[in-house]
């Protein structure tokens, strides 16, 4: 058999292996996306029936209404804040996870970290209601300690959303950071120290830069999840929060304005795509610098 023929066969084989997942992606991701795209350019009448005419009216609505612009802004802001807090909190956790001298301790940390992912996000978020409610844990304790006279309103605002988000998404930031920490050759830290750098300097100049890929991967996951979830904001923030996924949910399920919902979805996708694209570009530049 000639070389090209062999290569052709190998290629064919790969394609056959790929077919099921490609089909799945095609039917359940690409196709719905295209339908959503088409839908977003349709007009609606005043009873919210989708008309067969096409226009940019839905996008004009999204990008001119001060309410929707504010919603976009606060959605991105909340996602950004969640991402930053997650990365900052995840770093020490990842450090502990990787650098614990004892294998048993490491395994325990892993289980602690991953086990919340085994319960549904709804249950995890409900826990925050129990903690933050008017008669919840935090208020009860503060009242008993006579630090406050009136229960504080801790729920139904964006702070509650961010708190719940951080808790829910922390593992997604810890794992990639831990991975890239684990990949640093131990003698790079030794090299830094023998050259005279103390622990802090070694961390800032060697460890931290080498975990940038892990931090970016974590940020991409957390940011996308934070900008795109609606269960958590709905449960702890309430349905009135200016939050794009909530607005989409309302347009589709309550107002039944499907084209507007579609346009908002694609707008959200666009912004998340831009952020992820920029982060990905930084990652690629950084890795190119290090590995060619």
């Amino acid at each position: 058999m000639t070389k090209t023929k062999k290569k052709y066969r190998r290629n064919m084989f790969s394609w056959i292996l790929l077919t099921p997942s490609l089909l799945f992606m095609g039917i359940f991701l690409i196709l719905p996306f295209l339908l959503l795209l088409i839908l977003s350019f349709h007009d609606v009448d005043k009873y919210m029936n989708t008309l067969s005419t096409f226009s940019l009216s839905q996008y004009i609505e999204v990008f001119t209404s001060p309410f929707y612009l504010g919603t976009i802004r606060s959605t991105l802001w909340v996602a950004l804040l969640t991402t930053v807090i997650c990365i900052v909190l995840a770093y020490p956790a990842a450090y502990l996870l990787v650098r614990s001298p004892n294998q048993g301790t490491r395994t325990m940390f892993y289980i602690l970290l991953v086990s919340p992912l085994l319960t549904s996000v709804v249950i995890r978020t409900f826990a925050w209601i129990v903690i933050l409610a008017q008669n919840g844990l935090v208020n009860e304790v503060l009242m008993k300690l006579h630090l406050i006279n009136q229960p504080l309103t801790l729920l139904w605002n964006m702070n509650a959303v961010i708190i719940a988000y951080v808790q829910v998404m922390l593992p997604f930031a810890v794992l990639p950071i831990a991975t890239s920490l684990g990949e640093i050759a131990p003698n790079l830290r030794q090299a830094s120290m023998i050259l005279g750098a103390g622990r802090l300097r070694t961390f800032v100049k060697v460890t931290l830069p080498l975990t940038i890929p892990g931090m970016i991967s974590g940020a991409v996951i957390v940011f996308s999840l934070a900008a795109g979830s609606y269960i958590t904001p709905l449960l702890v923030g309430g349905r009135l929060q200016p939050f794009l996924p909530l607005s989409i949910y309302q347009q589709v399920m309550q107002v039944s304005n499907l084209p507007l919902g579609a346009a908002m979805s694609l707008t959200l996708l666009l912004f998340v795509g831009i952020v992820v694209g920029v982060l990905g570009w930084i990652l690629k530049r950084w890795e190119g610098r290090m590995n060619g």
Binding site: A185, N187, Q190, A191, M193, I194, G198, V206, M290, N291
Partner: peptide, 20 residues
């Protein structure tokens, strides 16, 4: 004394150059 106070030059087996 910690390594960073010893004033030693060291060369490692796999070079340990800072890749970044």
């Amino acid at each position: 004394l910690p390594p960073y106070r010893r004033d030693i030059g060291m060369v490692f087996q796999n070079y340990a150059l800072f890749p970044h």
